[in-house]
Nucleic acid binder design. Structure first.
Lengths: 155, 155
DNA sequence: CACGAATCCTATTTGTTCTATGGATTATTT
DNA sequence: AAATAATCCATAGAACAAATAGGATTCGTG
């Protein structure tokens, strides 16, 4: 149930963009270096995020990538779905299989696995579709502040 | 985030055993045929479940597999963990990495991804560690009854 | 003890996905 | 035109998933 490196790198790059107040637009190379992501790999990831309307880009000198929406309007779920597909634990709950069954399913209507996995799917979505990129960055900042306070006390 | 065929097959076979009142012990071949699972593949799966203390087996004539505990004492989470590992969405939340970091992590303490994924992990566990094999079968039976009632009305 | 029933074990195959890279192309600014 | 930067295309290598093959081991029974 691990998320892929793609998703992680996407989250890192997007968080970096959301955190940056000074500048709006960054080069692939800048993002790659800042977050320690293989540049060529990140390139493909950013392109995918653009195709999903999460990022915007401009070519040529002065170009680069920037967020297409406010961080508060980007859910973590929408980012992860971009790379992991809908997060259905079983095929029959996937949107691609519109109301369809798992290939190996014997009795779709009474399948206990489907019934339980529906709850799992719901639990996942209830976190990922609610938390936004903005909140993720806020929580990170909050931890940072906590740490620096602890450092102050210890001095 | 899909579970593997292994996990699905395991759930199917275990549900079959939990549902069976007449008999306690079944041959691999019986389980394989009943649930449409490749026999050799199922063989390996059942062996793994045995190593986790979920199944018991006896060799030789009259042998076969049976549940090692009551269905109400087997959580769906324990079954899935057998094949998917702990269900940590990121490496740093896995038990193998005891308090460790993701290999690519820059600042573990303030990592926003980790903070959000902790919630995800929690949400997953809150379903899978609570629902048991017995409950899964009950829910399936309940759906079956609903359907047969609908059939009665329509006649 | 010998035989057959059944699980147990090791290895291999096959296909797919994940991670990553290289090289050529297109758009934009100066 | 020249430089800059994203874009597109192709593919290699590793890891993993699903399934299969073949034999080894254990157990009950005649």
């Amino acid at each position: 149930m691990m998320i892929s490196m793609r998703s992680k790198y996407a989250l890192k790059a997007l968080a970096f963009l959301a955190r940056s107040k000074e500048k709006e637009t960054f080069l692939i190379a800048e993002l790659a270096e800042a977050e320690h992501i293989p540049k060529k790999f990140l390139e493909a990831i950013l392109l995918t995020l653009k195709s999903q309307g999460i990022l915007a880009s401009r070519k040529g000198p002065g170009g680069g990538y920037s967020l297409a929406k406010a961080p508060a309007a980007i859910t973590i779920g929408s980012i992860i779905r971009t790379f992991e597909g809908d997060m259905a634990p079983v095929h029959c709950l996937s949107e691609q299989a519109r109301g369809g069954e798992c290939p190996e399913c014997i009795d779709h209507a009474t399948c206990g696995i489907r019934l339980v996995m529906t709850d799992v799917h719901q639990a996942l979505a209830s976190v990922l579709d609610v938390v936004t990129l903005a909140e993720m960055v806020e929580r990170s900042d909050f931890e940072r502040q906590k740490l620096s306070r602890q450092l102050d006390y210890s001095i």
